Simulated assay, not measured.
Amino acid sequence: MSLSGGQKQRVAIGSAIASEREIIILDEPTSGLDLRHMKGVAHNLKKLQGMGKTQFIISHDLELILESCSHALHIEKGTISDNYPIDDEGEKKLFAFFIKYNQEIVDNQSALCI
């Protein structure tokens, strides 16, 4: 109970890794972590990838995605709307997606304020 939020997050990630499952699903694995710890998590996720572990990382953290993922999969309303490798072209698509996503949030917030 005395652990910080970031420490609890890292323990949760560690337990998922220690489970020795072939597929690991992580939902916002770096929420509450500072940049240094996020980069540490990204490094460990890349190590797992190198060990042949399949990981699904659900995140709104563009930097984490770029640091640790090899492919992007967009799911909208229960349907896969896009799937591509994160190469130079994929990075451009990710940036465009995040710009659109952030603009929708701003638009929705503005609508709520009217």
Score class of each variant (00 low, 15 high):
Glu89Gln: 13
Leu112Asp: 12
Ala96Pro: 00
Glu76Ala: 15
Thr54Val: 13
Ile58Cys: 06
Ala96Ile: 09
Ile25Trp: 02
Arg10Ala: 06
Ser59Cys: 03
Gln7His: 08
Cys113Lys: 12
Lys93Glu: 03
Asp107Glu: 14
Ser68Gly: 08
Glu104Ile: 01
Ile99Asp: 08
Lys47Ser: 13
Ser110Asp: 07
Gln103Pro: 00
Arg21Tyr: 10
Arg36Met: 14
Asn102Thr: 13
Ala16Cys: 12
Leu48Trp: 07
Ile105Ala: 05
Ala72Cys: 12
Leu64Val: 02
Ile25Ser: 02
Leu33Tyr: 06
Thr30Gln: 04
Leu35Tyr: 09
Ile24Cys: 04
Asp82Asn: 15
Pro29Asp: 14
His71Gln: 04
Ser70Gln: 02
Met38Leu: 14
Asp87Cys: 08
Ile75Trp: 01
Phe97His: 13
Leu48Lys: 01
Asp87Ala: 08
Asp87Phe: 11
Leu35Ala: 15
Val41Pro: 15
Ala72Leu: 10
Ser31Cys: 03
Lys47Asn: 12
Lys53Val: 03
Arg36Lys: 15
Thr30Asn: 07
Ser81Ile: 14
Val41Gln: 08
Glu63Phe: 04
Gly50Asn: 09
Tyr84Met: 09
Ile23His: 09
Ala96His: 14
Ile80His: 12
Ala72Arg: 00
Asn102Phe: 12
Ala72Phe: 08
Arg10Phe: 05
Ile25Thr: 02
Glu20Lys: 14
Phe56His: 03
Ile105Lys: 11
Ile86Arg: 00
Gly32Arg: 12
Lys46Asn: 13
Leu62Tyr: 00
Thr30Cys: 05
Leu48Phe: 11
Ile86Asn: 00
Asn83Gly: 04
Met38Thr: 13
His37Cys: 05
Leu66Arg: 15
Thr30Glu: 03
Ala16His: 03
Gly52Ile: 05
Lys53Phe: 02
Leu3Cys: 06
Phe95Cys: 04
Arg10Gln: 08
Gln55Leu: 13
Ile86Glu: 01
Gly90Val: 05
Val11Arg: 09
Pro29Glu: 12
Lys47Glu: 15
Ala111Thr: 13
Thr79His: 15
Lys8Arg: 13
Lys47Gly: 11
Lys77Leu: 07
Asp27Leu: 10
Lys92Val: 15
Leu62Val: 15
Lys46Ile: 07
Asp27Gln: 13
Val11Glu: 05
Ser4Met: 05
Ser81Lys: 14
Gln55Glu: 05
Asp88Cys: 10
Leu26Tyr: 10
Ala18Asp: 01
His60Ile: 02
Leu35Gly: 05
Leu26Glu: 10
Ser68Tyr: 03
